[in-house]
Structure formats: C-alpha cells, structure tokens
Design a protein around this nucleic acid. Structure first.
Lengths: 331, 331
DNA sequence: CTGTTAGCGCATTCAT
DNA sequence: ATGAATGCGCTAACAG
C-alpha cells in the first residue's frame, strides 16, 4: 500500500523507459516494440497504476465521457434509453455523466453548464433543450449534442426521436375507427404527454373530458384519474392514457368498480412497458423503441468524435400501435 | 460565436485583472473586492466562459464528481437510491458518473478501474464489491467508498444497507405465524434475492418448493413462476416473492386461474414499490428506504471529502414488513 | 521505434 | 487585496 497513487512516471521508472514510451505502450500499443510493451505491462501491474483521465483528457481533449441529461430518473419510460446509452458507450470506453433537469428550464440550463465544464465528448439530452441560452451555450461549446425522445425541426445539433403529436393523432384515429364517441383522456402533465393528448383530442374536435396527472404517473394516480373522469363523464366508453402505468391504474379501478374492460370501457396506454402485454386484460399501447434511440444517440456521438460526417442529423424512429385486449384486440 | 471556448485567461483579460484574481473571484469570491468580483462576473458573461473542471480538478484534486456503480439500470428497485444520490450530490455541486456492473465480477472490476481513473471524489457501489482485486484497488485509491443496499461486516470502507437474510427470516416468521404450511418461494436469481429466499426457507426447515426467475423480474415471469410452482405444489397456500413485480404477476396469474387471493393463496412481495399499495388486492411487502440509503451515502462521502471523521462506517437502515390484503391484512 | 520539449487550464504555493 | 511563478499528470508535436 503506497500513500501516493502511482503515476505514469512511476511506471516508466519501473519499466526503465521514458515517460512517453510508457504512455504509448498503454494508449497506442502498436507503435511500440513487443518487448517494451510487455515490460510496461508488468510495471503497470507492479505499481497498481491507474491512468489519471483528468490529466489525459486535459491534454488530449478527449475525456471519454458523455453527458446524459434526463428530466427525472423516476420516470421509468426513459430507462431503456438510458440503459442502451450507458452500455453502448461503455463498450467503447466511454462513461456516462448523469444529470437530472427536473422538468425545470433553469435547472436544465445549470446542469448543462456544469456538464459542459466537465468537458464531455458529447451530450445527450432527453427532450428538447428548453432555454435559448442553453441552446446557445451548447452550440458554442462545439460538442456533439443529441436531443432524444422528441423530434425537433431545428435541433441544437442532432435529434433522434418521434412525433408525440402523431402518436396522439394515431390513437385518436384508432378510437374514431372503433366508433367510440364518449371518450376521455388521462394525461401526464409534462409537455410531451400533453402533446400526445393534444393529438388525441384533435381527432375528436378538441373537446374531450380530461384528467391531468401530476408526476409521478403511477398506478394510484391512474386509479384516481379514472374516478375523476367518471364524475365528469359518466357515460365514458373509452379512455386514452399517456402511460401504461396510468392505464394499469385504470384497469385496476375499473375492476374495483365492476366496470368490464373492454366491454364497458376501452383503455389504451403508451410505452409498451414490459408488463402491458401481461396484465388482464392486456393493454393496447404504443410502442416506441427506447433502446434504439439510445443506440443511435451513442452512434451519432461516437461517429462525430471520430470525425465521421453524420449524414442525417434528425432521425425519426417512429412508433407503432399495438392492439391488445383492453380495446377489444386479441393479443 | 468564437471558435475557441473562452478560458480563464480570456476572462481575466476582459476584466483587466490577472488570471489568478479571476480564478479567485469565481472560486473564492469573499477574498476579492466587490468591484473586482463584479467586473469578473461581467467578463464571464461577456465571454461565455465555462470553467474547465478537468483542469481545475487536476490541480485541486477535487473533481466534484462521484462515481456510482449499479448492477443494472433495468432493475427498478435501485432507482430510488440512484435518484436520491443524484439529487443530493447535485445540490452540493457534484455530478454522478454512472457505471453498470452487469452482475459480472470481472465487468465490475473493470468499471471500478475506469471510475478510479476519472478521479472521482467518492465511489458508491450498489451491492458488495465482489472481487478482492477490486477491493484492494479501491482501498489503494484512498477514495471514500460506500457499499450500499447490503451490509458488510468488513466493508471496503463504509457500508449502508440492510440484512437480506433477516428480511427473509422476518417473512418466514410471519408466514409461520399465519399457520401456513404449504408455502412456496419465487426468487430472483441475483445473490441478494437468493439470500432473502434462504432466510425465508430457513423458517420452514429449508425445504420449500421454489421457482427461480432470471432477470428481469417482471410481471410475465411472475405469472410463469406461479404456474411452475403450482405444478410442483398443487396445494400451495402461500407464496413469497422477492419483488413486488413478481408478486403482481402472481396476482395476475391467480386471477386468470380463478384462484382467490388471499383466501386460496396468500402472496407477499418485496420493495414496497409504489404500485404495491394500490393493486387489487394490495400487496403485503417489505419496505426498505432506498432514498435514505442514497442520502446517507451522499452524506458520508461529502463528510469525508470535507475531512470530517465519520463516526459510523457501517449503517443498518433496517426494513419493515407491511401487511396488506394479499396476506389477509386490511391495508 | 524511442526520447525531448512544451504545453492543456487551472489553483496552489509564495510574494507584494 | 492582488500578482508571478510553479506544477497537477498526461499527451501532441517534433526530433533523433
């Protein structure tokens, strides 16, 4: 046990080579003789050397770090994205620096600033960057930036996502095609959920009874929201929820009240969360490919780091509706 | 839009002071005259300066970064911990560097090495550090390390958690006190779930029909596990699951089969996940305080960074059983 | 293939 | 209260 952690100088000394040779043996092994490489390897082992990436990054301008900013960790719909991002980056030796923006523009701007200060090699933001100031500072940083989970016609840099408005329209169109008239919406309060709900309502001329759910969108609030909605609209035939968890709450509350789904009430969710196929009845929902978005974001950033020109800076990953029992489907 | 991001030198120039005065105006504002401070502030604004924390950290040995290593992001039981950790750290200006160990000792060791290399001011590991080599290297790094979510009698450094074995024993004792004889267990395959199941089985002399669920522990696998268990033990009276999601799957499968819970089959889960109180029937479970563990870990690390001696290096946060309808309770 | 020189951007000595 | 020098640990140039 040494008091001072070993530095590259110690390794070089132990291996009997110069500092830079040791550096190359580790970072660029091909341009060093096999013998030297081996001696350095042994010296590393002997000294317990762990490279100081702060120093390396300062000099080389590559910190092998990517910043990820997410509205809230508690919102499980973002987890698949985060996970794909983390593991794809890790595979290339990059580590994720995590920040929570808390659905608060000022907080987001502050988080992005501290991120930039840590000199990541790229930044992934879940959602669109909200303040103009933050957008400017991101641009000025010159870093690759990917806004994810939502599409922007004018992204800070790159964008990977899907249209929430179109998701809502698709659901609205589906409800219309089913012939339901007395419909309702249960919507999360965040901007993207609202956007989906807007799209849905538009299919019914914009006038639809609605319950808004403050975060977190959990089972309990889904139950309460249905209760609320039924007071507003006792003849409710079908309800569109902005998350599968809310839909699951609706199923639960309906069951507790003896309302049959889908015979008395049709229900749909959003997210194709893993449980949604296995509830009773299974939940009709919209699938979006979170892992794919994470992977794409990782790829775009890696490509940019390696100087590859990115052909497409806005990627629409789309979505698709999955019809299940909760709206009369068979799956 | 400048091509080169502004450095402290640019700020100093713009403010008409020396580099170090600018540095102090930002990092140590009290020891600088109010006038100077204001001029520097304006220069910062004008230049769009964002401090390079790699450089600052290299010199000052404080990176304002804490590493967090988690088995898998997809395991939702760890999210409350992560969230509390992230937000508590953010409040003090620290950012979380996230790593996934993937339930793989070699991977864990590798992740920890790259973490150490990034010179964090502390490291939080969910679970016990698995390899001796990693433990040694962590010790040698001299960094504050908190192992969380599990207790260790011989932690690398500090430990905040609870005894999984005792959780199992408590559940076993509870089942015994209810007079159930034909009991079964549905257990996740990770070491901690197994430990809880061991504790449970011990209360029944160790011989209990069991289904082991590979990750992820989701609703579907809970359903299948019950089906499996019922083949082994058709007379099953009560089943103990290592997560609420599995328990929820059991409820679902039971309902699909016309098995009444709790009359025909009692069920318990683990984690007091937010939905568990609101399913029908509500799920008897074990509550552990994830956020508290996250907060404690953050506090221990912050304290250590500030040179405060930590009085208690192993903290047992305990747990408690919450009796609900799925085992005949009333909540 | 290897070594020498010179910084990366900042904060910690010292000095004034 | 301010400033000048020095070096954190490493790598990109260039040389040999």
């Amino acid at each position: 046990m040494k008091l001072k952690p070993a530095t590259l100088r110690d390794v070089a000394q132990a291996a009997g080579v110069s500092l830079i040779t040791a550096s190359r043996a580790l970072g660029n092994p091909d341009i060093v003789s096999a013998k030297t490489r081996e001696r350095v390897r042994q010296a590393v082992e002997a000294t317990g050397y762990i490279p100081n990436m702060l120093a390396g990054g300062l000099k080389s301008k590559r910190s092998l770090t990517v910043a990820g900013v997410i509205p809230a960790l508690s919102v499980t719909e973002f987890l698949p994205v985060l996970q794909a991002l983390t593991s794809d980056l890790a595979r290339e030796g990059y580590q994720l620096l995590l920040g929570e923006a808390g659905y608060d523009p000022a907080r987001e701007a502050a988080v992005l600033d501290t991120m930039i200060g840590r000199q990541p090699d790229g930044i992934v933001v879940v959602g669109l960057v909200q303040t103009q100031r933050a957008r400017d500072r991101l641009r000025r940083s010159g870093l690759p930036v990917v806004e994810i989970w939502e599409l922007s016609d004018r992204p800070v840099d790159m964008s990977v996502g899907f249209s929430h408005l179109k998701v809502g329209s698709a659901l609205g169109g589906y409800f219309v095609s089913k012939g339901w008239k007395q419909v309702g919406a249960i919507s999360g309060s965040d901007p993207r959920a609202r956007l989906r709900t807007e799209g849905f309502k538009a299919a019914f001329g914009g006038h639809v009874p609605m319950a808004v759910v403050q975060p977190p969108s959990n089972l309990e609030r889904g139950r309460r929201a249905l209760a609320e909605l039924l007071e507003q609209a006792p003849g409710l035939e079908a309800v569109c929820c902005t998350s599968d968890m809310l839909a699951s709450g609706v199923l639960t509350e309906a069951r507790a009240r003896g309302i049959r789904v889908p015979q008395d009430l049709a229900v749909c969710g959003f997210g194709n969360t893993d449980f949604s196929a296995h509830t009773v009845p299974s939940i009709t929902t919209v699938h979006v490919d979170g892992p794919e978005m994470g992977r794409l974001a990782a790829r775009l950033i890696m490509d940019r780091c390696r100087g590859k020109a990115v052909e497409q800076s806005v990627v629409d990953v789309g979505f698709h509706l999955i019809e299940r029992e909760s709206t009369g489907g068979t799956a």
